[in-house]
Structure formats: C-alpha cells, structure tokens
Design a protein around this nucleic acid. Structure first.
Length: 114
DNA sequence: AATTTGACAGCGA
DNA sequence: GTCGCTGCCAAAT
C-alpha cells in the first residue's frame, strides 16, 4: 500500500500488459503486438516493450515468453541475455528453428476468451 | 503542456 | 535473410 507507486496501482496500460503476460502458459509465447492488441491498443507494440523494461520484479511474470514477431529476442533482455532466455524457453517446450528463431507460428499463444 | 525514450512492426532496398 | 527508415503508442521528465 504505502510502498507502491501510483503507476503500479492504477489501471494503466502497463498494468493491463502485466496481467496479460502473467497468463501466458508454459511452452507458449506471445508477441508484443499481440499483447498490445489484448491490452486495448493494437498499435502499441512499442509501448509494450517499454512496459516490459519497467516490469517490477516482485510481479514474477514470465516476460521471457514475450518475443518480437520475427521470433527473435531482444539483445537487451534483462535476465541474462538472449541465450539465457532461449534456454528458459526451450526448457518449457518452445520450439526453435535452425536459424535460432522461435517457431512462432507453432508456439504462439492462442486465446479464445479475454 | 512539450519533449524524449524505447524489450516493436511494416516496408523497401 | 539483413539493414535502415518511418510510424505508432504510453510513460517519465
């Protein structure tokens, strides 16, 4: 209550993004654009990136399951680098192709109701 | 209120 | 396939 910033409490775009990301199941990935659309702003993929960069650690959300649409990952990923992220994903069953990219078409998170 | 920033996406070369 | 440029958006300053 007292140690929270307003941005962490109010129902902001970031907050919606965090809630959505926290629901991504194991072995699945979601794209920034996809999450932006779910959060209510289909063109705010970039803003989703900003949200991820500011993700408070105590939220414990699987931000490693968020990747760009080409199935590659951001070099500036904060948990130890792209290779580390790849290990985590492979450990969950996410399929990688020979070129080091995720088989996005196969592992994309499919939601029926939200 | 205006400017800056950035873990994106689409398009052309 | 990669590289660069452009458009977009929400947050923080």
């Amino acid at each position: 209550m007292y140690g929270f910033k307003k941005s962490e409490v109010k129902n902001s775009f970031f907050t919606r993004v965090y809630e959505i990301v926290s629901r991504i199941p194991r072995g699945r990935v979601a794209t920034y654009g996809q999450i932006a659309a779910m959060a209510g702003s289909p063109l705010a993929a970039r803003a989703v990136g900003t949200a991820m960069q500011n993700t408070p650690e105590y939220l414990d959300i699987p931000c490693h399951r968020v990747v760009n649409k080409s199935g590659s990952m951001s070099p500036s990923y904060a948990f130890g680098g792209a290779d580390k992220q790849r290990e985590m994903l492979e450990g969950e069953g996410v399929v990688f192709k020979g070129n080091g990219h995720i088989d996005i078409e196969r592992c994309i998170w499919i939601v029926d109701n939200y």
